[in-house]
Design a protein around this nucleic acid. Structure first.
Length: 574
RNA sequence: GACUCAAUAGCUCAGCUGGUAGAGCACAUCCCUUUUAAGGAUGGGGUCCUGGGUUCGAGCCCCAGUUGAGUCACCA
């Protein structure tokens, strides 16, 4: 009953599929197809004077067709780009029988089909390098029409832009919007550069559990799940910090992991429930050393991706050239507000926050207040890469106390384009202090902070055996990818960002209709008539339904035998 | 979670004060020179997001819902 749910264009394509099969052409052949060239290679290597590339085979998706009698032009898109194809009837069909050109190519091939062509490269009168096709193979017939996007001089016509469709059907976005493919290549390159950089330093890439009995290492709400056999609650990790530090205890001097983390929080253009973070821990180092590593690594990524340290992000040109600006948190606040809060107590901080229109509540301790003031007054103004150092101890239960300033820890965040991209500490390796900090977190939790950390005995046990002084880093790969690809939303650097499921119309299976005595061929017609469920059918007016069904039979020329009115009545009353 | 905006043909979008649903591309038919957003002519295609309401009459007005986007909140 295809015509009831398919669009006209889909029906036409299905018919073309049948026609191909009738002609003995398999629209989905099993054999491998020997591709010799990519589109970009042909465009780069072809030399009219040399007359090279006289026998090439390429494969890809047909993106446009211009048919003019016995000559046609088409565009083929492969992974590397697009190239024009030229089809000439008499060259494609040298003999008497021109059916292959007239029928198979002209009628049964559509935009979106995956095809392979063999031919010789030449330059058209318009000067475009093209392949003169002598052999055409259909490799996969496309049954749905593709959005058609056209381009001229960098101007795009009828762009495929609906974000809902682009994210839910990312493959379409990738087929039709070339810059999207490039964004994800850049993201892959970014990860590769980072990995090479760390491997060159002989740090060990490791994997640690995603399902964790106690979540920790960050301030966030987790996803909760359940293991049936063990009958226990498990959490999807919010960070992998504590496991990586256990590996430092175990004697590796440098470990890192590209980790998918999961946080059960709101979504926005900067937040997806699952996101990727690279965490790195290096023994015998401190946070100052780590700052230099971050600068060097990110600068290298910028150069690798763009050939320069300067990257255009929205309206800002960001320069990742070392060294980056450095501010302590108190300096930054003083710089942007003119207020020195370094000596204030909790009460004074709360008053200052109010004065600066920073929203606060009673659950906030001294550290949280300072953090809020910073977040409100400074963060968005830090466009060029900047390190903010020396955070209040209350906000950083896993960081080592500052070597010279009371009440602070040795911590820094890297801020670029007004957003945090990384977070690092001199790791706390004093087990007595660590236990105390966890206990303070418990107090915060009692005060109402639902992101306070849980006390992790297992982790404490590990560092009680002794962990070397260690520098640790977490760097947000998605955020960094956004900056490096000039993407406005995290959804643009994730292939499949989290989306709400589309609400599907409920449809009862055909068997339920058959039980009512409805002939099989009429079931989809009844459903299409506005009764997708048996329950709804039970409410129908039999006379009206009967007329509706006969009407549809006529309109769609289905050629079915109309049911009698009493039969329709019997279905409804069955 | 709050507020604002959006949803119409396969795609991009018009649609006046409430009165017979439109364009470009895509698709089909016919003709046709190596064309460049690209040949020409003709034609078909709609659950106007869903469900209610107001009205003689709703794509348009009102209410509720679905999905998306933006801003804010939480957060990396």
């Amino acid at each position: 009953m295809a015509f009831l749910e398919l669009s006209e264009q889909e029906i036409i394509r299905r018919k073309a599929l049948e026609e191909l099969e009738k002609l003995g052409i398999n629209p989905y052949p099993a054999e491998k197809y020997n591709v010799t060239h990519y589109s970009d290679q042909i465009k780069n290597e072809f030399d009219e004077e040399k007359g090279n590339l006289q026998d090439v085979t390429i494969a890809g998706r047909l993106m446009s067709r211009r048919i003019m009698g016995k000559a046609s032009f088409a565009e083929l898109q492969d992974e590397k780009g697009r190239i024009q194809l030229y089809f000439n009837r008499d060259e494609l069909c040298p003999g008497e029988d021109k059916a292959f050109y007239n029928t198979v190519f002209k009628k049964l091939t559509d935009i979106g089909d995956i095809i392979g062509v063999k031919g010789k490269v030449f330059k058209t009168q318009m000067g475009e390098i093209s392949v003169n096709v002598s052999e055409l193979t259909i490799l996969s017939k496309s049954l749905r029409p593709l959005p058609v996007v056209k381009e001229k001089d960098g101007k795009t016509y009828d762009a495929f832009t609906d974000p809902d469709q682009r994210y839910r059907q990312r493959y379409l976005d990738l087929i039709v919007n070339a810059p999207v493919r490039d964004t994800f290549k850049k993201r892959a390159r970014l990860v590769q550069t980072m990995r090479n950089f760390l491997n060159d330093k002989e740090y060990l890439e490791v994997e640690t559990p995603i399902l964790q009995p106690i979540y920790g290492g960050a301030a966030a709400r987790p996803f909760k799940t359940h293991h049936n056999k063990l009958d226990m609650t498990l959490y999807l990790r919010i960070a992998n910090e504590l496991y990586l530090k256990k590996l430092i205890v175990g004697g590796y001097d440098g470990v890192y992991e590209f980790a998918k983390d999961f946080r059960n929080e709101g979504m926005s253009r900067f937040h997806n429930p699952e996101f990727t973070q690279m965490e790195l821990y290096v023994a015998y180092k401190d946070y100052k050393w780590m700052m230099e590593l971050v600068e060097e690594m990110v600068e290298k990524i910028a150069i690798d991706l763009h050939g320069t340290t300067k990257v255009q992000v929205g309206e800002n040109e960001i320069d990742f050239k070392r060294p980056w600006k450095r501010f302590t948190m108190f300096e930054a606040i003083e710089h942007f507000t003119g207020i020195d809060i370094s000596q204030m107590d909790e009460k004074q901080l709360a008053e200052t926050a109010k004065k600066l229109n920073v929203e606060i509540d009673d659950s906030m301790g001294k550290g949280k207040l300072i953090d809020e003031i910073f977040g409100e007054t400074c963060e968005a103004k830090l466009i060029q890469p900047t390190f903010i150092t020396d955070y209040p101890v209350e906000m950083s239960p896993l960081a080592k106390k500052h070597r010279s300033v009371q009440g602070l820890v040795e911590r820094f965040e890297g801020i670029v384009n007004g957003k945090e991209i990384c977070n690092a500490y001199s790791e706390l390796n004093d087990p007595v202090d660590q236990r105390q900090r966890f206990e303070e977190q418990l107090l915060l939790a009692k005060r109402g902070d639902d992101e306070a950390m849980m006390l992790d005995e297992d982790f404490l046990k590990a560092i009680e055996y002794g962990m070397p002084p260690t520098a640790g880093l977490g760097i947000g790969i998605d955020r960094l990818a956004m900056i490096m690809t000039n993407s406005n939303s995290i959804q643009d650097v994730l292939f499949f960002p989290q989306m709400k499921p589309e609400k599907k119309m409920q449809i009862d299976p055909a068997s339920m209709y058959l039980e009512l005595g409805i002939p099989e061929e009429w079931v989809p017609v009844v459903q299409k008539a506005g009764f997708p469920t048996v329950a709804e059918l039970k409410e129908a007016n039999p006379n009206k339904l009967h007329q509706q069904l006969c009407g549809m039979n006529k309109k769609h020329k289905m050629g079915l035998q109309n049911p009698k009115p009493e039969e329709v009545k019997a279905w409804i009353e069955a």
